[in-house]
């Protein structure tokens, strides 16, 4: 199977959907002539032209709102936020308009927009540029939230997101753009709302999403190597819809749960998961659920501290042992 990067996988997904559906347009700051700040959209302007690959001014509230309006009329805009952190400039458009328009119109209108871009810390750019708003987005009924952690999922999920008839916030990671993985040529879809068992094991379920899953896989190697423990790793891939069944099946199997994510701990995705698990599988648990999240403070700039503020394979390893004690 061909091996391509996460970045190339995203680009391929957009290109295929541009080919397939004339209503798909790509918009955002620097997506055309500059090829995207992180080069995700490289080459698309040359191939599809300025009618479909649209450079916007630095006006997030304006152009995201414009995308939402276009979507209401049946376009399928794929909007790039240079950093997902800038979603807050467009907060009203996303969470009042995109999230509620279907409901408030009694189902007369729908909003097939994708808002995508990197949502991660760990790149030394400080608090304003390091937001991880999965839970904030998923809090809003009407919004879907997707977080791919591999090139395969990046492509399959983005294609599904573009075809979805609801607004999807698609959160990528600058530290994954250059990571490679096997991606088949041609058409395939990864449906929204299906988690993936990345590694099977019977001793503990480590559940999370995004780059934290890549770290969890490293910790699983360590757990095996040092303690002969078999961790099962579940990548949620999609936060809303959430694959509750796959999560619960793993919990019933291992009876021990560690939740991992890069976001802050308060009202986060892992907090929601912990609630669901204790509600639906309390009797299966042999130990309290634990979590590894970012340290609860704005993202620090200082590089060595920022690394420690985020989850690390070592922290996940230590927390897993604590759950298993």
């Amino acid at each position: 199977m061909p091996v391509i990067t996460y970045r190339e996988a995203l680009r391929a997904a957009m290109a295929e959907e541009l080919d397939r559906d004339p209503n798909v347009v790509i918009m955002g700051e620097e997506v055309g002539q500059f090829h995207g700040a992180y080069k995700v959209t490289e080459g698309l302007l040359a191939k599809y032209g300025p009618r479909r690959i649209v450079d916007t001014p630095i006006s997030e509230a304006g152009f995201i709102g414009m995308g939402i309006g276009g979507a209401m009329l049946g376009l399928r805009p794929v909007m790039e936020l240079m950093f997902f952190s800038f979603y807050s400039v467009a907060f009203d458009q996303i969470f009042n308009n995109a999230a509620n328009i279907r409901y408030m119109s009694g189902g007369l209108i729908n909003c097939p927009i994708v808002i995508r871009g990197p949502a991660n810390g760990g790149t030394n750019v400080g608090a304003t540029h390091s937001h991880t708003p999965e839970s904030i987005a998923a809090y809003h009924p009407g919004i879907k939230v997707v977080v791919p952690s591999t090139p395969y999922d990046a492509k399959g999920l983005l294609k599904s997101a573009i075809r979805d008839n609801d607004p999807v916030m698609f959160m990528e990671n600058t530290l994954l753009y250059g990571e490679s993985g096997e991606v088949p040529d041609g058409e395939y879809l990864v449906p929204l709302g299906s988690a993936k068992v990345m590694r099977e094991g019977g001793d503990i379920s480590i559940i999370g999403h995004g780059r934290a899953i890549q770290m969890a896989l490293k910790s699983a190697d360590l757990l095996k190597e040092k303690h002969n423990l078999n961790a099962e790793i579940i990548d949620l891939r999609s936060i809303r819809p959430l694959d509750v069944e796959t999560v619960l099946a793993s919990v019933r199997k291992t009876s021990r749960v560690l939740l991992v994510e890069e976001a802050k701990p308060f009202c986060s995705v892992s907090a929601m998961l912990a609630c669901i698990i204790q509600e639906k599988a309390f009797d299966y648990l042999d130990a309290p659920i634990r979590r590894v999240t970012s340290v609860d403070a704005p993202a620090i700039y200082s590089a060595p501290l920022e690394k420690e503020q985020l989850p690390t394979p070592q922290k996940i390893f230590d927390a897993a042992l604590a759950v298993l004690k």
């Binding site: 030394n124 400080g126 608090a127 304003t128």
Partner: peptide
Amino acid sequence: GKYTGCSKGKGGSMHYFDPSRHYWGGHGIV
């Protein structure tokens, strides 16, 4: 990113501050 920085290494190049000099930043969001 050092503790002796104007913002104790918390803000970085984009986020300098010194209210004593009436200098209110240094802001990263355009």
